[in-house]
Design a protein around this nucleic acid. Structure first.
Lengths: 134, 134
DNA sequence: TTTATTGTATATTGTATATGTACAATAGGC
DNA sequence: GCCTATTGTACATATACAATATACAATAAA
């Protein structure tokens, strides 16, 4: 699957474009839609697909490389690494909890029914338990 | 409960301070820690408590007022309104789903165990089902 | 060895954030 | 009713960040 086919960038969202790319690709990487050994599009190719500048894509790739997801080299492009999960800091857990609560609060504020929120979270929890999301 | 006692602002987090205030207060509002009719601290008071400028707090209050959470008037301060949830747009649901996946991906990247993520989501789902979070 | 391709570095420009300062509205005291 | 202190608001400014334009450096492949 080409990343550009499913990766959507919203220039009007307020969130920086490079962060949107990081978040979107990271979700694909975690879910296994990009497997280790695979080649990601070049910064220029993805930039063209998204209609942005290649330096913006490069910035996103750099973040993912620092997280250990990508091996990034000139002339070779970006390759997905076989990454091991690090051990979590206490902050990471607190952060997740806090941001989850804030995400839910925002959804409720936007009118998403509590039942729909609960259902989706139960879904995701189940997937995680099954190892479906790795 | 004073908002400033539990609201934490991280100047180094990268996220704009006024957004941190919005997210934090919104979570309190949704959870009922601030009930309708209650008075929030004045923009100047909260600014002092957080060690920032009052205009930054004012910006955050304005966002919450536009969302229907606050009645904001000169000389009267900010009062929590009895807010009804609007009906969700299809985008709101998609947004929630997408951001939830991205939040989970980030937590996993940071090393939070999948089991811990699943447990916390199950917790929150349960609370929502019970009406514990309103 | 040459060349095309790829990521990287630097400068520039526009936008957003946080602040400083002044203003406008108004509840409460007299 | 008028004054005054308190509160949110408006606007200008400094600074930082994001996205781009352009040039450069490394290197696989011919």
């Amino acid at each position: 699957m080409r990343s550009s086919r499913t990766l959507r960038i919203d220039l009007a969202s307020g969130q920086p474009v490079y962060e949107q790319i990081v978040s979107g690709l990271r979700a694909f990487l975690v879910s296994g839609e990009f497997k280790s050994g695979e080649q990601l599009p070049t910064v220029r190719q993805l930039a063209i697909d998204l209609g942005i500048h290649h330096n913006t894509v490069a910035e996103a790739y750099r973040v993912l490389a620092e997280e250990g997801w990508l091996d990034l080299r000139r002339r070779r492009g970006a390759m997905v690494l076989d990454r091991r999960d690090p051990k979590a800091t206490p902050e990471a857990k607190q952060d997740f909890r806090k941001h989850l609560e804030e995400l839910i609060a925002k959804a409720i504020t936007n009118g998403v029914p509590r039942s729909a929120i609960a259902d989706r979270m139960a879904d995701m929890a189940k997937k995680l338990g099954q190892g479906g999301t790795r």
